[in-house]
């Protein structure tokens, strides 16, 4: 087993507000190995984006309190000096954001953006940086890269703009790419293009990817390993096949049951999760946070169940005995029976 590229240890992110403390990330620990694609799944407010922004210390809210350790190649990013961190941002760890419409500064060309990143980390001439920008734009599938390098963001379509952002992220050959909902703002057919591009680039460049998404389908097409977050905690983590075939946590069942089946059958009703997601300002945290919406909740859901590895590489935080999971899962997904 090689040393992990990224190791997050007991990361906790909270915000002080007038009405009290809001806990966005509640003690999560995980690792990302070199060359691996990890999917981080959750709904809005689950803490999936905040936790990854914290990795690069990109939250500049003075009321934000961060605890824990984020080790990248053995060095703690949270305690590192600003200068050291800057040399990692963009060069070792790159990031792609959800909305390609707003991720590029509107007054600069595509080439300018890419050159800026290259020249921030390497001593190369403007000309050389521009040539690399053209190469990169070609490699992410932008036609006529020689002329498009001088186009402004508003002259690209949404999908093309996301390609520019990806080219920029890859410009310094990062070893870790954090992609925060990279396709959510795009049309389905464009999403398919971008996902394929990411897959191709990943096998070509070999970077690890942490893919943040709310879409189980996207994760299942991209990730080697899947982590499910709820209320700022990891509730399930395992290999893609384990989690997709035999999801273990009731929340994951609910997520799966909420998606219309794609196998061609039509369900009568969806096995939706009742109620609303837990609010990050909920202070009653010494329990399973999913219990209020869980059909199987009992008194034993308090105190907070830990993330336990029930079988190699597949862990979850639920008190239901692992032997009963298959049975319960069938019950949970029962309303999803096909139409006659």
């Amino acid at each position: 087993m090689s040393e992990p590229l990224l190791e997050v240890r007991n990361l906790r992110v909270s915000f002080r507000t007038r009405t009290g403390t809001v806990t966005a990330v509640d003690g999560i620990s995980f690792t990302v190995d070199p060359g691996e694609v990890v999917g981080l799944v959750g709904e809005s407010g689950s803490g999936k984006s905040v936790s990854m922004l914290t990795v690069l210390r990109l939250i500049d809210n003075p009321n934000c309190v961060i605890e824990g350790e984020v080790l990248f190649k053995g060095n703690d990013l949270l305690t590192m000096s600003d200068a050291d961190l800057r040399s990692i941002r963009g060069r070792e760890i790159a990031m792609i954001f959800q909305d390609p419409m707003t991720a590029l500064t509107p007054v600069y060309t595509a080439g300018w953006h890419i050159s800026e990143q290259i020249r921030a980390h390497e001593k190369v001439s403007k000309k050389a940086a521009n040539d690399r920008a053209i190469q990169l734009l070609t490699s992410v599938g932008i036609p006529n890269a020689e002329s498009r390098v001088n186009s402004y963001p508003h002259e690209f379509s949404g999908g093309m703009r996301q390609r520019v952002v990806i080219a920029m992220a890859l410009s310094c050959n990062p070893s870790l790419l954090i992609a925060d909902e990279p396709t959510t703002a795009l049309d389905v057919t464009i999403q398919a293009q971008i996902l394929e591009l990411l897959r191709d680039l990943q096998s070509e460049f070999g970077a690890s990817i942490v893919l943040i998404t709310h879409d189980m389908g996207v994760v299942s097409q991209m990730a080697n390993r899947v982590m499910v977050m709820y209320g700022g905690r990891l509730v399930e983590a395992g290999s893609r096949l384990d989690v997709m075939r035999e999801p273990a946590h009731p929340y994951t069942w609910g997520l799966m049951g909420s998606i219309p089946p794609t196998d061609g059958t039509r369900a009568v009703r969806l096995a939706a999760i009742p109620g609303a997601p837990i609010s990050p300002s909920d202070s009653d945290r010494d329990r399973c946070l999913f219990a209020p919406r869980c059909t199987f909740a009992t008194d034993s859901c308090r105190p907070q169940p830990g993330l336990i590895e029930h079988r190699p590489g597949h862990s979850d935080a639920c008190i239901i005995p692992f032997s009963e999971r298959a049975q319960r899962r069938t019950e949970a997904l029962a309303p999803m029976r096909a139409r006659t």
Partner: peptide, 16 residues
């Protein structure tokens, strides 16, 4: 193009 939840070991070929 719909990202289907994939439970196969091989990612299926798609029309992009």
């Amino acid at each position: 193009a719909i990202p289907v939840i994939d439970t196969d070991t091989e990612v299926r070929e798609r029309i992009v």
